[in-house]
Amino acid sequence: MDGAQLGIVAFTVKTALLSTLVILPPGIGLAWLLAKRQWPGKSVVETLVSLPLVMPPVATGLILLMLLGRRGPLGGWLYERGIEVAFTAAAVVVALGVMSFPLLVRAARVAFEEVSPRLEQIAATLGSGNLRIFFTVTLPLAARGVLAGTVLAFSRALGEFGATIIIAGNIPGKTQTLSLAIFQFVQVGRDREAMSLLLVTVIIAFLTLLSAEWLARRGKKKTEAG
């Protein structure tokens, strides 16, 4: 594997990690709101969040491009302030984040729903406000589900293709991720390079699952030990 290929791997892992970190706080917050509270417009938000799951990724990418392109409502506003999103590394992070967000929210939501409201009520009678209840009862008890959702989101980000290629392009050294590079190498018949990147992909996927399993087991032990 040469330097360029290493760069692609590092870029992919970095953008996937970054996008996962960025969606974690809003994803957990939204999952909690969906699981534990009733509010107007809830079902609309629910649908919007899940939309990227059912839409073709390319279509999601196109919508993002229309929003964030230089002439888009959000992109234009940013461009006036000297920030360009489309076809940059930032666009990759945005695409990965949007595509993996529903996976995180759905998993975390289920995990929060499974935390008995009774325990949260008891925590309140013991003097805890909402924030303390969340951090001392709800989140620790939902930790495994939230972690599973995070791993799922990260994996989805690692492999994201359709939305990324539309809003970020496939610019070697700038926005090219593993999937995009494999696609390009296959297209131009450089099978050897494609194969070595494929091998790296398999290794990363394997390591991700392994560390998730390890974290989950540690979390379980901790839950039982208190």
Binding site: S116, R118, L119, Q121, I122, A123, A124, T125, L126, G127, S128, G129, T136, V137, P140, L141, K222, T223, A225, G226
Partner: peptide, 30 residues
């Protein structure tokens, strides 16, 4: 007044102990 402001202890039928805390962690919670 929300429960946390009332100063009223509640022992429910099923006990409702926090499963992620030890006995000590439970009794020290409040």
């Amino acid at each position: 007044l929300p429960p946390q402001a009332r100063g009223i202890g509640y022992v429910p039928q099923e006990g409702a102990l926090f499963p992620h805390r030890s006995v000590r962690g439970n009794i020290l919670y409040g």
